[in-house]
Design a protein around this nucleic acid. Structure first.
Lengths: 256, 256
DNA sequence: AGTTGTGAAGTGTTTCACAGCA
DNA sequence: TGCTGTGAAACACTTCACAACT
């Protein structure tokens, strides 16, 4: 089993920690804003505030990239923008395909920040023949049949999956077979991919559930009741721990 | 300055690590699928595979919730579904408002998994008067003027911001003032909120940038270029990468 | 004086490996 | 026998605090 790995291999690149990589885009955005206001230099304290992190963390993060600051002064905004862009690989242009042009896919296609920084929507792909040819965000939707051809002829290495959950793994397999090695998955499914392929997932309902967890804690906290179980206003779901009757011996769980 | 905190307070609740909380929804989804197939029990190994994590991690995660398994057997699916739901606070119903009904807001409103598990879209809110009354996903859009009233009369504590970046902080302030204490932010902005308010952000372009970073590394790894992977057009930003003196270690430069 | 860059300490997370129980 | 539950080790990340430099 274990036909392939799932998720970030986390192969700590050139010694840049994954957590740092995840923050670089944040710094970049803050720096870009400063750049647009023609601010020439910025201190770690200021930039950290703008990016929503603390300054020690920011300095440590930057230290993995090199010594790009000037003691007593701060960081040169333009220079740092460039260095981070380069580190993130944004000085080249990444063609991206979006598969699944429903509400979400359309939203993504229209998302401005998409094109702005190093990414270019090379194609929109949908399984519905009725969609074919219809322009979304100025780009004509193409049918799934074209997928392999599009990937190959455009040298696409990043794919975005915005299909229903049921179609996601299949689309993923085709993307990978055609040469895509990085996937951003919006479908609520665990994708299985071969080694060497990166998958990141964005999952609305997971985020909401995490918020609900904390929200519940807040509610429980102020109603006295300590030490024990989470007070919870629980509208008593009547799920009980009892065996199901017919146990056919279902082997359970398959990796699809 | 420092008017308020930014981001997850990460107040390690009742000893359940944040990393574990973030995985509970994943387990829950896998368990729900098993439940629908009437699978009665599942081992840590099987469940871990379905959720895309390794089994040691899963067992450790579950150990924070209590001892819900049976040695030699595994976990009772229904029972675990209930325990995790309860822990996440999904046995109560969370009314949610979505602010900003553009492409993305509409996609979110239509997202099924939304309503399915403990969340209910209480209202859709948009600043555009032309949108008012128009139904999206069967729910009539209401004008921003109604925001405070909606929040208060529905007891909404979770808000989703899907507005343009420029409006996000202002919307956030109003949500918080009206009583919202958890926010899911899709706008590419760092929100500032008072203590006690949780913010989680979902940011497409950040995810893509992280993928680009890894993608770039893959490309660089196997020598320079090869026929057929990136459309690497390296749009030479001419920022001159030379201003620092001391070499001799870490810089991790990858000239192209 | 002001601010970076970084060892070292502290904290959180993952993995190992096996005792303990069904 | 098989699988959970968990200390302990390993690893990753964050924060501290200050020397080094401008």
């Amino acid at each position: 089993m274990a036909t392939g790995r799932t998720h970030r291999p986390a192969t700590r690149s050139r010694g840049i920690p994954e957590a740092t990589v995840a923050r670089l885009p944040l710094y970049l955005r803050a720096l870009t804003a400063l750049s647009e206001r023609s601010v020439p230099t910025v201190s770690s304290e200021e930039l950290a505030a703008a990016a929503g992190v603390n300054s020690a963390k920011l300095r440590k993060d930057f230290s993995y990239l090199g010594s790009y600051g000037t003691r007593g002064v701060g960081y040169d905004v333009e220079y740092l923008v460039y260095q981070i862009s380069r580190e993130l690989g944004l000085t080249q242009d990444w063609p991206v395909v979006i598969v699944g042009i429903g509400n979400l896919g359309a939203a993504l296609a229209n998302y401005g920040g998409f094109a702005s920084r190093g990414f270019r929507v090379a194609a929109l792909i949908d399984a519905d023949p009725a969609m074919a040819g219809k322009p979304v965000a100025g780009i004509p939707v193409q049918h799934t049949d074209e997928l392999e051809h599009i990937i190959e002829s455009n040298g696409v290495s990043i794919g975005v999956i915005a299909t229903p959950a049921g179609a996601a793994q299949q689309v993923c397999d085709r993307l990978v077979a055609a040469g895509v090695t990085s996937i951003l998955n919006f479908a609520p499914t665990v994708l299985t991919v071969p080694d060497g392929v990166d998958v990141r997932k964005v999952d609305l309902s997971i985020e909401l559930q995490i918020l609900a967890f904390h929200e519940q804690r807040k509610a429980g906290e102020e109603s006295g009741q300590e030490g024990g179980t989470p007070a919870a206003v629980t509208r008593a779901a009547s799920v009980e721990a009892d065996r199901k009757g017919p146990d056919g011996d279902v082997p359970a769980v398959m990796p699809a």
